[in-house]
C-alpha cells in the first residue's frame, strides 16, 4: 500500500535530477542567456556518464565525463548566441537536436548493458533524528545529498557574493555592468558553461544513479523541458526550483503507486481494474507543468517579479545603450 515516506524518498531521488538541471539553467538565465537545450545536454550527459562508467568501470569518471560533456555542448550555444548573436530560442532548439543526435549515435549499442552506479549512503548522526533522519538522511544516493548542498550554495552564490552580483548585473543591464568593468561576454560564456555542466550532471543522475541504464531518448523523456518550466515557475530562485523538483519527483512516484492496490480509499481502484486509464495518470506531470506555469506567472505578476531584464537579448559592445 502507499507509504508517504516512501513517496517522499522517491521524490527526493528523482527530484534531484530536476534540481541539478533547473538550478543550472537558473544560473545561465540569470546572466542573460536562455538555453533551451537542457533536454539535449541532459541526454548527452546521461549517455556520456553511462558510457564512460561502462568503459572504465569507474562511476566517478563517468560523472566527471558527463559534467564536461554537458559543459562542452553548451559552449556551442554560447558561441552562437553570444558572439554570432543568433536567436537564443532557435539555437537552444538546435542544441536539443544536436545533443539528442550525438547521444543516440555515440550511445549506440549501450542499451541493455549494466555498469557501476553511484552508491547509497547513510549520514552518521543526522540519520538518527526520528522520522526526518529516516526519510532524508538514510540510504539515499550520494547525489541526493550533493543536491541538498547545491541549494544553499547556489542561493548564497547568486545573492551574496561579488561574482553572483556581477552575474545578475550582466543579466539585468549588460551595458551598465560593462561600464563598471565586468566582462559581459566572458561572464555569459562562464555561466552558460556552468549551466551545461549541471545539465550534464542531471543526465548522469539518471543514467548512473537514480534509474541506471541507457534507454536511448527515453532516458530523459522530457525532463529537460520540465526543468526549463521549473525555472520560470520558480521565478529564477534556486530554492523554489529545488522544492518544485522534489514535488515533481513525488508526483511521479505517486502516480505509479496509485496503480498498485485493488482498493483505494474503500473504493474499487479504477486504475487497477482498467489499465488503460493509466495513460491519464501519465499525463499528470506534463499537465501539472502547465498549471504550475499558470500559477507561477500570476504570482509573478502580483509580486512584480520578472525574468532577468536582458534575458534572450544579445549584447553587442558599444552598439546600443540598453
Amino acid at each position: 500500500m502507499m507509504n508517504f515516506s516512501e513517496i517522499l524518498r522517491s521524490g527526493l531521488s528523482t527530484g534531484t535530477i530536476l534540481l541539478f538541471a533547473a538550478i543550472g539553467e537558473i544560473i545561465t538565465e540569470r546572466s542573460g542567456i536562455q538555453n533551451l537545450g537542457v533536454e539535449g545536454m541532459m541526454l548527452f550527459g546521461a549517455m556520456a556518464a553511462f558510457k564512460a562508467s561502462y568503459m572504465t568501470g569507474n562511476v566517478w569518471i563517468g560523472l566527471l565525463v558527463a559534467i564536461i560533456a554537458g559543459g562542452i555542448l553548451s559552449l556551442a550555444h554560447a558561441l552562437v548566441t553570444i558572439h554570432f548573436q543568433a536567436d537564443q530560442t532557435v539555437s537552444g532548439l538546435s542544441l536539443t537536436f544536436l545533443g539528442t543526435g550525438l547521444a543516440l549515435v555515440i550511445g549506440e549499442g549501450l542499451t541493455g548493458m549494466t555498469t557501476a552506479t553511484v552508491p547509497n549512503l547513510t549520514i552518521p548522526l543526522l540519520s538518527k533524528i526520528p522520522f526526518i533522519g529516516q526519510v532524508f538522511f538514510s540510504n539515499l544516493n550520494l547525489l541526493v545529498y550533493i543536491g541538498y548542498l547545491t541549494i544553499p550554495i547556489a542561493w548564497y552564490f547568486i545573492n551574496k557574493t561579488k561574482p553572483g552580483l556581477d552575474m545578475r548585473a550582466v543579466g539585468e543591464n549588460p551595458a551598465a555592468a560593462d561600464t563598471l568593468g565586468v566582462n559581459v561576454y566572458a561572464t555569459r560564456y562562464l555561466y552558460t558553461f556552468v549551466g551545461g555542466c549541471m545539465a550534464g550532471l542531471a543526465g548522469a543522475t539518471i543514467s548512473v544513479a537514480v534509474s541506471p541504464g541507457w534507454y536511448s531518448h527515453l532516458t530523459t523523456s522530457g525532463q529537460g523541458w520540465i526543468a526549463v518550466a521549473l525555472v520560470i515557475f520558480s521565478h529564477w530562485n534556486p530554492t523554489r526550483a529545488a522544492l518544485g523538483g522534489y514535488l515533481f519527483g513525488m508526483l511521479r512516484r505517486f502516480t505509479l503507486d496509485l496503480q498498485g492496490p485493488a482498493m483505494l480509499l474503500g473504493m474499487r481502484n479504477p486504475f487497477f481494474y482498467n489499465h488503460n486509464l493509466v495513460f491519464f495518470l501519465q499525463m499528470v506531470p506534463y499537465a501539472l507543468t502547465i498549471v504550475a506555469l499558470l500559477w507561477g506567472s500570476s504570482a509573478a505578476r502580483r509580486k512584480r517579479i520578472g525574468a532577468p531584464a536582458s534575458l534572450g537579448i544579445p549584447y553587442s559592445r558599444g552598439e546600443r545603450g540598453v
Binding site: L93, S94, T100, L102
Partner: peptide
C-alpha cells in the same frame, strides 16, 4: 542506416550552422 540518431545529429548541426551563418549577413 545505423545508428539511428544520425538524422537527428545532421539536423542539429545544419540548424546550428545556418543560424550561425546569419552573422555574415549582419
Amino acid at each position: 542506416i545505423q545508428p539511428s540518431g544520425i538524422s537527428f545529429l545532421l539536423q542539429g548541426i545544419i540548424l546550428f550552422l545556418v543560424i550561425s551563418s546569419d552573422v555574415l549577413l549582419k
